[in-house]
Computed example of a mutant assay.
Amino acid sequence: MQFRTQIPISKSNNPIDYNSKVISLGSCFAENMAEKFDYFKFQNVTNPFGIIFNPVSIEKIINRIVREEFYTEKDVFFYNERWHSYEVHSDLSNSDRQELLETLNKAISETNKKLKEATHIIITYGTSWIYRNLESDEIVANCHKVPQKQFSKELLPIEVIQKSIQNTIELIQVLNPDINFIFTVSPVRHIKDGFAENQLSKSHLFAAVHFNLKSNINNLKLEYFPSYEIMMDELRDYRFYAEDMLHPNQVAIDYIWHKFSENYISEESVSTLQEVSEIQKSLRHRSFNPESDQHQKFLAKLQQKISAIQEKWTHIKF
């Protein structure tokens, strides 16, 4: 008997392996998945401009990266004793304006290079709700706790999101025509927008993403991973949520990664992934008696395993 509904997931046409170079962009769920890529020692770059939730702000950043449009003094502002950019997350904000500009422009150059080399890009959309700066009439990626009266809150229409996603695809393909796209919608619910409003927001994302997948149905380089659907159906229980009852907890993240790796990681890479996992667990092992012969033998054996895997995959570092 089946006591839960299971989401059918198609095997990827272009699976990720240890030669692949992955870029992950988008919401905080992109970071959850990227932590898994890092743990298993895949070649992965995550959110060089911090967490970004809405499709238009992701498109803006991609446009800057592809065209190498560097930030200047007019693109940053001073508030609360720090310099910020409305296009990036507050994690990058800095008390020194020049340092902020250097950080942002270095990220543009490095990400441009990484994007040219990448085999896969994973884009996670979080919300259709956006904040528009009333003075500049620009959509912002982050408000940086600037008073809300300086922004209008809007729901992006499906047509605008569709076009933004299409623009994002085309921009990236200019730089790297061979790259593989994996789109997903974040399973994190944005309840501060309201319960019905969150559902509306997610539905706009689904409609826009699937419109692009359907209109590019013969393009095998565009794929969709149902992380939101797995969370809502297969993990339909509060035991799979963090304390805020909104974010997936570690058990849920592990399960969604398991479903992802089953379908998007190449079968040839599974043995390496398991070897890396064993090494990671051994590195976390704490001995009661570090000086004992038994522990020294354990360390020597562990070093042999690390050397063997690094001989095969030179990018892997522990």
Rank of each mutant, 00 (worst) to 15 (best):
Q2V: 09
F3A: 10
R4F: 09
T5W: 01
T5I: 12
Q6G: 03
P8K: 15
P8L: 14
S12E: 03
N13L: 08
P15D: 01
S20L: 07
V22Q: 00
I23T: 07
L25I: 13
G26T: 07
S27R: 05
C28H: 13
E35Y: 10
K36L: 07
Q43A: 08
N47G: 02
N54H: 14
E59C: 14
I62S: 06
I62H: 09
E68P: 04
E69M: 06
Y71C: 11
T72Y: 03
K74N: 11
V76R: 01
E81H: 13
E81D: 14
R82D: 02
W83D: 00
S85C: 09
H89D: 14
H89P: 04
H89C: 07
S90Q: 08
S90F: 07
L92A: 08
N94V: 03
N94E: 11
S95H: 09
E99G: 03
E102A: 12
S109T: 11
N112D: 04
N112A: 14
L115W: 07
Y125W: 07
Y131W: 12
N133Y: 10
N133W: 04
E138A: 14
A141Q: 02
H144V: 00
V146I: 13
V146F: 00
V146E: 00
Q150S: 10
F151V: 09
E154P: 00
E159F: 12
E159I: 14
V160K: 15
Q162N: 12
K163G: 08
Q166R: 14
V174C: 08
L175I: 02
D178I: 05
F181D: 08
S186Y: 04
P187Y: 05
A196D: 07
S201I: 11
K202I: 00
L205A: 10
A207W: 03
L213F: 06
K214F: 03
N218M: 12
K221C: 07
Y228I: 04
Y228V: 04
M232N: 08
M232C: 04
D233F: 00
L235R: 10
F240Y: 15
A242V: 03
D244W: 06
P248M: 13
N249E: 06
A252T: 10
I253L: 01
Y255R: 11
Y255T: 06
H258S: 13
S261R: 15
E262H: 08
E268M: 01
V270N: 05
S271F: 05
V276F: 10
S277W: 01
S277K: 15
E278A: 12
S282T: 02
H285F: 15
P290W: 00
E291C: 05
H295D: 11
H295T: 06
F298Q: 09
Q303G: 06
Q304N: 10
K305M: 07
I309H: 06
K312A: 12
W313A: 02
K317V: 06
